[in-house]
C-alpha cells in the first residue's frame, strides 16, 4: 500500500511512518548513487581509499574550524562567507569519504548491528584522532580573523593547485570531485587573498594581526608539500597527485599576495613530527583531539540513532 503523504509539510514523508523519529538531518542516501565506483585498472583499493581519506579529512577538519566562526565573525557578510566555504568543503568531504568506503570497505569502522549510519558518516564520526590523516595545518585553533584568513589563504591556494591536477585523475569519481572543487575553491582562495591584502594594508592593528596569524601557522605550511608513500603510489598509478609537485606553483601564488601586501614570508622552522611521522600518518596535535571530541560526541553516544 502506498502511504499517503501530505506534501504541504516538509516533515511529512520524512517520518517513514515512524513518528518517534523526531530529528531530521540531511539526506542519508548514498551520495554516489548511480556513480560508477569501479577501481581503475592497476590501482590498489586500499591506497586509493587511504588517499581519499587524506583529502577528505583535510576538508572535514577545515570545514569544522570554519564553521566555528558561525555567529562569531566580524560582520554578517563574513559569517555567511565562512559558512559557505565550510559547506563547500563539507560537500567535498562527503563525496570523498563515500569514495574511500567504495574503494576499500575495510577502512569503514564497524558499528553495532542495526546501525543506520552510512559509511561516510561512520568514517567522519567513528574514527579516532590517530586514524585521521589530515595535515596538521587544518586542525590548529582558529585564532582571530586575521589568523583564520592567513590559514585559509595557504590552505585554499594549496588545495586548489592539487585539485587542478587531480581533475585529470584516472579515477572518475576523484576527477569529478576535483573539477567541481576547482570551481568552488577559486572563490575561497580569492576571498582569503583579498582579505589578507585588505588586512595587511589596513590599520596597524589589522596588519599586526594578519602578520602574526601568518607567522603562527607557518610552521605547519611545510608539511603540505611532503609526499608520503601512499600519495606517491596513487600518483604513480595516475589517480592521485604528489603534493611536492605543487610546491613551486603555490609558492609563486603566495608570493604575489605577500608582495602586494608588503608582508615578508615568515622564517619559521617546520613543526617536527615524531620520527618523521606527521598528520598524514595519523600523528596530530592536541587541537585535533579536542575538535573531534566536540564534533563526534553526539554521534558516538547514539551509534544506532536515526537522524
Amino acid at each position: 500500500m502506498v502511504e499517503q503523504v501530505d506534501h504541504e509539510s516538509v516533515y511529512d514523508g520524512l517520518l517513514g511512518g515512524d513518528d518517534s523519529q523526531w530529528a531530521f538531518g540531511t539526506d542519508f542516501e548514498d551520495p554516489l548513487a548511480g556513480v560508477d565506483t569501479t577501481l581503475p585498472e592497476g590501482v590498489d583499493g586500499h591506497d586509493l581509499a587511504t588517499y581519499c581519506l587524506m583529502l577528505a579529512d583535510d576538508a572535514l577538519v577545515m570545514s569544522h574550524r570554519l564553521s566555528q566562526w558561525c555567529s562569531k565573525a566580524p560582520d554578517l557578510e563574513e559569517d555567511i562567507a565562512l559558512a559557505n566555504v565550510a559547506l563547500d568543503l563539507l560537500g567535498q568531504t562527503r563525496l570523498l569519504l563515500a569514495r574511500a568506503a567504495a574503494a576499500d570497505p575495510s577502512v569503514v569502522p564497524a558499528l553495532p548491528e542495526g546501525s543506520p549510519v552510512p559509511p561516510e558518516d561512520a568514517l567522519a564520526f567513528f574514527r579516532g584522532d590517530r586514524e585521521f590523516l589530515n595535515v596538521r595545518l587544518v586542525e590548529a585553533e582558529n585564532g582571530d580573523f586575521g589568523r583564520t584568513m592567513a590559514r585559509l589563504l595557504v590552505f585554499a591556494t594549496w588545495r586548489l593547485a592539487l585539485f587542478e591536477r587531480l581533475a585529470s585523475s584516472r579515477d572518475r569519481v576523484l576527477s569529478a570531485v576535483a573539477v567541481k572543487g576547482v570551481k568552488e575553491m577559486t572563490y575561497h582562495r580569492d576571498y582569503a587573498a583579498r582579505w589578507f591584502l585588505t588586512l595587511a594594508q589596513g590599520t596597524d592593528e589589522s596588519r599586526r594581526r594578519v602578520v602574526d596569524g601568518l607567522t603562527a601557522i607557518w610552521s605547519l605550511h611545510h608539511e603540505l608539500f611532503v609526499t608520503t608513500d601512499v600519495e606517491q603510489s596513487v600518483a604513480d598509478a595516475g589517480v592521485g597527485v604528489a603534493p611536492h609537485q605543487v610546491a613551486d606553483e603555490v609558492d609563486v601564488l603566495l608570493e604575489q599576495v605577500f608582495s602586494l601586501s608588503g608582508v615578508e614570508r615568515p622564517t619559521v622552522s617546520p613543526l617536527a613530527g615524531v620520527r618523521g611521522r606527521t598528520g598524514r600518518h595519523g600523528l596530530h596535535t592536541e587541537a585535533l583531539s579536542k575538535l573531534l571530541a566536540e564534533m563526534q560526541v553526539v554521534a558516538r553516544a547514539h551509534p544506532t540513532g536515526t537522524w
Binding site: 502506498v2 540531511t26 539526506d27 554516489l32 548513487a33 556513480v35 563525496l95 569529478a176 567541481k180
Partner: peptide, 28 residues
Amino acid sequence: ATMRDDLVHRLQDDGFGDVEVRVSLSPA
C-alpha cells in the same frame, strides 16, 4: 536531498511506482 525526494514523490503521485534518482557528477 529535497530535490530527490520531490522528484520521487511527484513521479509516484503521477502513477510511476518505481522511481530511482541517480547522481551524475561529470560533467560538473
